[in-house]
């Protein structure tokens, strides 16, 4: 069972180490961790995907709260969030295969960001499922390299009543 935690932290030196260190020390399983600036330059937001049951989640949350630089922890309800991942994939391709790959990319609303004689680089964002589907399709051509950011997520605004 995975949980997505959105954690606001004060942008102090070492804050990432503190959070990451806590996970390893307490033997919690982290699936992905993403950190970036927010609208407030003093605050960063971490999106942490944790694996574990409800009890583990409770301990993770409580232990995180004990870190002095952690401001707020929200477990994101998977039904009420927008979650995205970004992937960059370099696919091997011959000149003949190029248009087919571009077509696939189009279907996934992905961008071609680099063209070389024997490869293409594709940039895609989306949910985990979508990116996995894309990667799967491209695997046939031969993936030279790829990199993923890990999940980021935000709660949606209030629903219209």
């Amino acid at each position: 069972m995975t949980h997505i935690l959105s954690v606001s932290v004060l942008n102090k030196p070492g804050v990432l180490t503190r959070v990451a260190g806590l996970f390893s020390r307490r033997n919690f399983n982290i699936e992905s961790l993403n950190v970036g600036k927010t609208e407030n330059p003093e605050i960063s937001r971490m999106t942490i995907v944790v694996r574990g049951d409800q009890k583990v989640l409770e301990q993770v949350t409580k232990q995180l709260h004990k870190l002095i630089n952690v401001l707020k922890i929200t477990e994101l309800d998977k039904n009420a969030i927008v979650e995205r991942d970004l992937i960059l994939i370099r696919v091997k391709c011959t000149r003949k295969q190029r248009s087919e790959i571009i077509q696939i990319a189009d279907t996934f609303r992905a961008q071609i960001v680099d063209v070389a004689p024997d490869s293409l680089m594709i940039e895609a964002t989306g949910t985990e499922d979508k990116l996995e589907a894309l990667t799967e399709l491209l695997r046939d051509f031969g993936i030279a390299e790829f990199v993923r950011t890990g999940r980021v997520a935000l709660s949606r605004g209030q629903a219209i009543k």
């Binding site: 030196p13 070492g14 180490t17 806590l22 002095i68």
Partner: peptide, 14 residues
């Protein structure tokens, strides 16, 4: 020492 003492202090500062 801040790195070393991270998991064994309540908090630390450099």
């Amino acid at each position: 020492i801040t790195g070393i003492s991270l998991p064994i202090t309540k908090h630390n500062f450099l």
